[in-house]
Design a protein around this nucleic acid. Structure first.
Lengths: 210, 210
DNA sequence: ATTCCAAAGTTAATTATATCACAAACAAGT
DNA sequence: ACTTGTTTGTGATATAATTAACTTTGGAAT
């Protein structure tokens, strides 16, 4: 086990493997193999083993992997063995969708503060959490010790929201606004642009015909 | 201009460039350069030129690119110069968020049919489009000639919805359910798993400390 | 016209990622 | 104990993508 730079593709696959292991475990499966996992998630067995190899040896040769063990290891690697507090900014349809997204809660992400600028929304409860005014962003983020911020506001406000989140102690940002955000290098940033995915599809459809 | 295999990363970047060009054009900018674009979207100028080079020569040396021209070219490449009809299955929060996502309409994606299994939702209008019963999926998809299907239903129903979409003539699927779908090779499939993005963030946060 | 400059287009080098193929190791059966 | 079958872990190989360096070309200024 060497501490090399890990390809991001590997991290993404680990996340997918963990989903596979979660369901395998729920179905009562005790042991699995790189072949099983590979088939289940649509990659090659060698790829699966290589991905694991970045982090150690989790299986026994000739046998395979213990599902529970492996799953626990991967969750640990992904940083999911403890709870993460998340601040959500923007309660449009997308923001709402995110609050109710089962996958987040299941995997240890706890939305602990929600902000919006719409007076009509402030004070309303979404699940357990009351929507706060965007004016109280700094205070609210600090109070619940959010380490992660989710930006689900219109593009024109995204940068200032990002700045304020960072100023309030957030260390990582998931941005759904279709803009390039400027953040200090120590801040982890990921962008999700839903339209991009559709565009990759249409590009590929075009290719087929040609 | 050779017809090689195009990296998917290139397609994704083209999509991002097009967003940059869209705003540049709106601001009245006539001419731009690989350097401008690179800075605007956070990649290297060489990368920008390389990406364009897969598809032809769009600029003039010593000058740069005409914003409108280049934008038009990229939209053409991405298959966005005509309208795409999209069928949406599943009107949970995520489904709702997608229907109201400005980016889709703006870029020529037209949600022409919406399906759900919840009796309470059937018949209600979302924007212009009435929600239909999932029982009428085949009929509804055919009637509006949807080429793309978006799956926003719980994981356990995703595969059967995919099968039915494909049987109804859909050629590409954008899947938001966290499962690996089995589709024929000629069907374009992309999966979006929102939790994955958060997990990449938490992994990276973990790395920082270590 | 000629020269100079700036930025595109292109080729080559580097780096990153994925695949392959095999040796090591464990379990079970003889 | 020994053999056999199986699956891991890994070093070597192949492929892909990015970066860097170079060449070309159009436009502007003299």
């Amino acid at each position: 086990m060497k501490t090399l730079k890990i390809p991001e593709a590997t991290i993404i696959r680990l996340s997918v493997y963990s989903r596979f292991l979660y369901t395998a475990d729920k179905r009562g499966i005790i042991t699995t193999s790189s072949g099983d996992i590979a088939e289940g998630v649509g990659v090659s067995p060698a790829q699966v083993r290589k991905d694991f190899a970045y982090f150690g040896e989790f299986g026994t040769r000739g046998v395979g992997y213990n599902v529970k063990d492996l799953h626990r290891h991967i969750l640990k690697i992904l940083g999911l063995s403890n709870i993460w507090y998340v601040a959500l900014v923007g309660v449009g349809n997308l923001g709402l969708a995110l609050t109710s997204y089962k996958g987040f809660r299941e995997r240890g992400f706890h939305i602990c503060a929600i902000f919006d600028s719409d007076q009509g929304k402030i004070g309303t409860k979404i699940g357990e959490v009351a929507v706060q005014s965007i004016d109280e962003l700094e205070k609210g983020v600090r109070e619940c010790h959010a380490q992660i911020g989710i930006i689900a506001v219109p593009a024109e406000f995204a940068q200032q929201v990002a700045d304020r989140l960072i100023a309030s102690g957030v260390k990582a940002i998931l941005n759904f606004a279709p803009v390039v955000l400027n953040v200090p290098p120590e801040i982890e940033l990921r962008n999700v642009d839903l339209a991009v995915h559709l565009e990759v599809l249409t590009f590929n459809l075009g290719m087929q015909k040609a």
